[in-house]
Design a protein around this nucleic acid. Sequence first.
DNA 1: TTATAGAGTTAGACTTATTCTAAGTCTAAC
DNA 2: GTTAGACTTAGAATAAGTCTAACTCTATAA
Lengths: 142, 142
Amino acid sequence: MTLMVRLSDCTPPGLAAFLRSQKVTPTAQRLNIAQILFTQHAHFSAEDVFNEVNKSDAVVSKATVYNTLGLFVERGLIKKVLVDPVKVFYDSNVAPHHHFYDLDSGKIQDIEPDQISLKEVPDLPDGTCLASVEVVVRVRKQ
Amino acid sequence: MTLMVRLSDCTPPGLAAFLRSQKVTPTAQRLNIAQILFTQHAHFSAEDVFNEVNKSDAVVSKATVYNTLGLFVERGLIKKVLVDPVKVFYDSNVAPHHHFYDLDSGKIQDIEPDQISLKEVPDLPDGTCLASVEVVVRVRKQ
DNA sequence: TTATAGAGTTAGACTTATTCTAAGTCTAAC
DNA sequence: GTTAGACTTAGAATAAGTCTAACTCTATAA
């Protein structure tokens, strides 16, 4: 269930098998979206995915794009990245890593996990368990 | 210009002097908003500030709330906190620290700086300089 | 003081990301 | 093949945040 496994076969049948293995019914729309997400490392907004998936002949509605991204997040196939105050990005790299966010260009870049790491994880608030640790390094021109 | 200095005098004249020292003209609306932000440690959404400031007799418009929060961020008096996918929070604690975000309740909590810290800052992308480093530890019930 | 320029504020319209709704379509299990 | 329920859809709805254009205040100079 790592990124490598997913990327090993990005043909429609390969993606369909992968989705099935994740208990996701592989519909035509989901395959189109999966193809976009899993054949390249990038950070997509919902709008990016919508534009990309509808660039060719395929037509997938906005609602389905949001539904599918939400489902994939729920299944752990992609991760939400909250770096921009106005929209959510989605990252098909679910391995532990962090992000640069360029305030001027709005571009997101991965920070490799060995490039940054926490000295210690703080004591969590009572009655809670860890969900994720996200580091965002904001940079600007110059 | 630390939090301590600011909190030492939260009377209207004290706040007015503080704003003036930060090159911010102390209007009635800004004083009302500053009072809310600087007399307690908390994380406010724009809506929180709007409700709080209009709870008593004062009436401050939504536009002014957004303008003022933006101005205070620009002047470094408060910080934006991006932890929630749908709205921005503002933190009157500008000292270096990080945040817990409870996915179930939506509550934000400070992580003291000695509780977490980075082993090393990664090499920044070419042509950029550091703006900020933000760590968000997401937790959930249990 | 008072006049004035420009900074600040306002209501409400607007924009934009995201969610909802209700009706139609597909999938898969029998 | 039927069928129940999962999936998709267009478009309406929601909600955070921004914009506009008119009005009001602040503070500086005379």
